[in-house]
Every structure is written in structure tokens, then in C-alpha cells.
Design a protein around this nucleic acid. Structure first.
Lengths: 156, 156
DNA sequence: CGGATATCTTATTAAAATAGTCGGGATTTG
DNA sequence: CAAATCCCGACTATTTTAATAAGATATCCG
């Protein structure tokens, strides 16, 4: 029985966040094609297509078909939380099924179950982090990082 | 592409925590057999055997072979964190590989990577919750729950 | 209009992980 | 010795993951 890495996100969520951040970074430049995202981010274009289909259905991105078409953010970057993206691509945040964010069908022994409270606390702490970060705050972080780096240049 | 439930723990971790808690609840009664744990917890005995083998190698449980043998906690319940159990059974806590708790081989663009900081924060918040709970605190919680329930009995 | 560029949709697939199952060997107790 | 129990390695079915592929539909531009 091989041991993996615990409490994992799949590539869906990671790729999805990167793609959405990419869209945020290219706002105002018109529709961004899947091809350009996949090239910049090093993600398979066809695979990304599947992921973005879900994001579109959820309204997180808008699409423009045809030549010179592509994708745009579905709403302002400060209105898109990382948690929103993760929930669309990976489903409700839930370290175990019995504490799913959305599914009310729970184990019958909920009241007596001590371990359940642990998974609830894990779920809430994950949700809190993911919902505290928006594409807007990510853009700000990137900005900050960039200005720090150019500042550093003077000392070399 | 079907959507599962995001940021999941496997049964390994959940079963492991339940088994360890079961051992904590039966401390002082001598070795606890795998069979009795699997019956009380409703977990396949053979499967549990695999999990507990890992826990034994990590020193979280001690085993007593032969008839009337079984398992005992490897150390005092206040010295066993839920995070310890999860790490043994599911590997280092890491929502993505690039922020593994133990693996220093990281993506080359670590400094510039904005999404990376998100996964680090998720990782740290999960670890903080799991490391704040010990078998001892779980026993206390169970105790509290029990006394609340018996108190409630007076009003019926 | 017609071709190039893109998105949209459905189906298939290879590899890995998950969640077990099975059989037999070693050790201890009564 | 027999029963209980842990110990160990191999096997397997199912699901999930991460793509891949093929073709239909829509739009822009010359």
C-alpha cells in the first residue's frame, strides 16, 4: 500500500485557478484564446477546454466564439474567489463526505461522532482560506512581487 | 467529466483516526484486537490490518502477538496528534505537490508563483487544525458530549 | 462568400489511486 | 496441540485522473 500525499487537490483545481488568474492578467485585451492560455501556463489545450467548460457553465468565464474569439472573466476579479473556482472544478469542499458543504445527507450518527467535528473544522479552515483570496488580491500580490523584484535590481 | 468532492481525505486517514480513537477509548483494558476494532467501527478487518501496519511502523501503536494479543497506543493520547495519524496514512499534508510539507524538490518558479502561496496557506491551515487535536482532546470531547446527553435525560 | 480561427460537444483511453480481498505464515495463550 | 491473533505479500475490481481525438458550430476578415 503506497502512501501518496495527503489532503490533495487534483490538477483540475490548480489548472483552473491558473487559467482564471491568466484571464485576470489579460483583462482589457479582448477575448483570450484557450491556445494562448495553454501555452503560457503549460497546460494541455484539450484538457483545459474541459475545465473551462465547467467554469463557463458556472458563469465564472464568458466565451466569445469564432475567429479572434476566446474567454473573458465572467465578472470583476474582486468578485471571483478562489473558493468559487475550486468548488466548480472539484465539487463542494469536503475532506470527507459526511461533512460536505452542500450535501445534507449525512451519516446518522452525526451528533455522537467525534471524528466528524474534526473534518468540519478542516473543511471550514480550507474554505476560509480559499474564500479570502480573490483574483483581485492575486493581481495585487503579483504587482507587489513585481515591484519588489525591480527594486532589488538596483542593488545588483 | 464528473465532479467529485474537493480537497478530499481518503478512507485511510478517516479509518485510521477512528481506529486510533477506538484504541484510546479502550486504554487500560489490555491489548485490543483488530477484530473488535473492525466490528465496532464497521471497517473491513483485512483493510484495517494494512492501515495499522503503517501506524505500528511509525510507532503510533504497539502490537502484542498471539492469543489475547492486539494493539495498544504507542504513547500517551495527549502525545498523539490527529496530524500524526494523517501524515502516516496519507503522506505529508500538501494540497499540491509543489507545497509538500516534507519534499523540498519544488517547482523552479517558486518565487514568482502566485498560486503557490495559496496552496501554502491552505496546507498550513489544514496542518494547524490537525495538529491542534490530540486523542486526549478527542476523549475530552466525547466525555463532554456524554455528560451533556445524560444531563438532557433529566428533562424527558 | 470562403477560409481561417475558435469555441463547443461527445466519446474514448491509459495510467494511477483507492479500497479492498485472499491465503498462508509466525507467535503466543490456555 | 489448538485456538486466537498478529504479520506479510500478492492479487483485484472499481473509480478517478488526466488526457486525447474527432468533428460540429460559430464568427471574423479579406
Amino acid at each position: 500500500m503506497e502512501r501518496g500525499e495527503g489532503v490533495k487537490l487534483s490538477t483540475k483545481g490548480r489548472y483552473g485557478v491558473r487559467a482564471m488568474f491568466d484571464l485576470a492578467q489579460h483583462m482589457g485585451e479582448g477575448p483570450v484564446s484557450l491556445k494562448s492560455i495553454s501555452e503560457r501556463q503549460g497546460i494541455s489545450e484539450h484538457y483545459l477546454e474541459q475545465l473551462i467548460a465547467g467554469l463557463r457553465k458556472a458563469g465564472l468565464v464568458k466565451s466569445v466564439r469564432g475567429a479572434q474569439g476566446g474567454y473573458l472573466l465572467g465578472r470583476e476579479p474582486d468578485k471571483i474567489k478562489v473558493g468559487d473556482i475550486i468548488r466548480v472544478l472539484e465539487g463542494p469542499i469536503a475532506p470527507t463526505e459526511c461533512v460536505s458543504e452542500e450535501d445534507p445527507e449525512c451519516c446518522t450518527k452525526a451528533e455522537y461522532c467525534i471524528t466528524r467535528t474534526i473534518w468540519e473544522r478542516v473543511r471550514d479552515s480550507i474554505a476560509e482560506v480559499l474564500d479570502s483570496i480573490t483574483l483581485e488580491t492575486m493581481l495585487e500580490d503579483a504587482q507587489k512581487l513585481e515591484s519588489e523584484r525591480s527594486l532589488y535590481m538596483y542593488y545588483i
